Simulated scan of single mutants.
Amino acid sequence: MVELNLIAGVARTGAIGDGETIPWHYDADERQYKDRVADHPVVVGRKTHQGMTRIRGTHPVVVTGSPEEYEEADATFVSTVADAVEAVAAEGTTGWVIGGQSIYAMFLPYADRAFVSELPERQVASRVFPYLGTHWSVERRHAYDQFDVVEYRNEAPLDPADAPA
């Protein structure tokens, strides 16, 4: 069984970015993020994938409405949650969902855990992290100098095999 984890840096406003960039930078957050996802498959939307640099050892599982239109060495293009989970399973036992906004929302019901960097930023942006819901609980809090990473556990994740096609 594959474990799916969401990971995001989130401002106090819920913002995660503006659709083009992330409007803040914390070295410690970037390090912990890269350390967690390194050497694992990452589930990412097509636009986010095209705008980012690949993280060491990751295998992108790129979610797009038309996977047949894309081909890239060392990446898998899919259109459904079930196909993404199958692609993650082909690469390992843990997959990291790294965004953007619609991908977080799409995978939220199926995720086992979420690692949310609570950043002190107050900027409003066009892209936000989805509300986790009442069936998520705080497992632990990792304190850093400028922010905390809160680890949540989904007490009732849905089976990705039951996701809509």
Results as ranks from 00 to 15, higher is better:
Thr53Gln: 08
Thr53Trp: 05
Thr53Leu: 10
Ile55Ser: 13
Ile55Gly: 08
Ile55Pro: 01
Arg56Met: 09
Gly57Val: 04
Gly57His: 06
Thr58Gln: 05
Thr58Phe: 04
Pro60Trp: 02
Pro60Asn: 10
Val61Phe: 03
Val61Ser: 00
Val62Trp: 02
Val62Pro: 03
Val62Ala: 07
Gly65Thr: 10
Gly65Pro: 00
Ser66His: 14
Ser66Met: 11
Glu68Asp: 14
Glu69Ala: 13
Tyr70Gln: 05
Tyr70Leu: 15
Glu71Asp: 14
Glu72Val: 11
Glu72Ile: 04
Glu72Leu: 10
Ala73Arg: 09
Ala73Gly: 07
Ala73Gln: 11
Ala73His: 09
Asp74Arg: 14
Ala75Gln: 04
Ala75His: 07
Thr76Lys: 03
Thr76Gly: 06
Phe77Pro: 03
Val78Lys: 07
Val78Ala: 14
Val78Glu: 09
Val78Leu: 11
Ser79Met: 06
Thr80Ser: 13
Thr80Ala: 11
Val81Glu: 00
Val81Tyr: 00
Val81Ser: 02
Ala82Tyr: 02
Ala82Gly: 10
Asp83Ser: 14
Asp83Ala: 15
Asp83Lys: 13
Ala84Trp: 02
Ala84Val: 07
Ala84Pro: 05
Val85Cys: 12
Glu86Ser: 14
Glu86Phe: 03
Ala87Ser: 12
Ala87Glu: 04
Ala87Cys: 12
Ala87Val: 10
Ala87Trp: 00
Val88Pro: 00
Val88Ser: 07
Ala89His: 04
Ala90Phe: 04
Ala90Gly: 10
Glu91Leu: 06
Glu91Tyr: 01
Glu91Asn: 11
Gly92Arg: 11
Gly92Pro: 06
Thr93Val: 09
Thr93Asn: 13
Gly95Ala: 11
Gly95Asn: 07
Trp96His: 07
Ile98Asp: 01
Gly99Cys: 10
Gly99Ile: 08
Gly99Lys: 05
Gly100Ala: 12
Gly100Val: 06
Gly100Asp: 05
Ser102His: 12
Ser102Pro: 01
Ser102Gln: 15
Ile103Gln: 00
Ile103Arg: 03
Tyr104Arg: 02
Ala105Lys: 12
Met106Gly: 07
Met106Phe: 04
Met106Cys: 06
Phe107Val: 05
Leu108Pro: 03
Leu108Lys: 10
Pro109Met: 11
Pro109Ala: 15
Pro109Arg: 12
Pro109Gly: 11
Pro109Trp: 05
Ala111Tyr: 03
Asp112Trp: 01
Arg113Glu: 15
Arg113Ser: 11
Arg113Cys: 09
Ala114Asp: 03
Phe115Ile: 05
Phe115Ser: 05
Ser117Lys: 01
Ser117Gly: 15
Glu118Ile: 02
Leu119Val: 14
Leu119Thr: 08
Leu119Glu: 02
Leu119Gln: 05
Pro120Lys: 10
Pro120Asn: 13
Glu121Phe: 02
Arg122Lys: 08
Gln123Thr: 08
Gln123Asn: 08
Gln123Pro: 00
Val124Thr: 08
Val124Pro: 00
Val124Glu: 15
Ala125Val: 03
Arg127Ile: 01
Arg127Asn: 13
Phe129Ala: 12
Phe129Met: 09
Phe129Thr: 05
Tyr131Lys: 14
Tyr131Pro: 03
Tyr131Ser: 13
Tyr131Asp: 15
Leu132Pro: 02
Gly133Pro: 03
Thr134Ser: 15
Thr134Val: 08
Thr134Arg: 14
His135Pro: 01
His135Asn: 13
His135Thr: 14
Trp136Ala: 13
Trp136Leu: 08
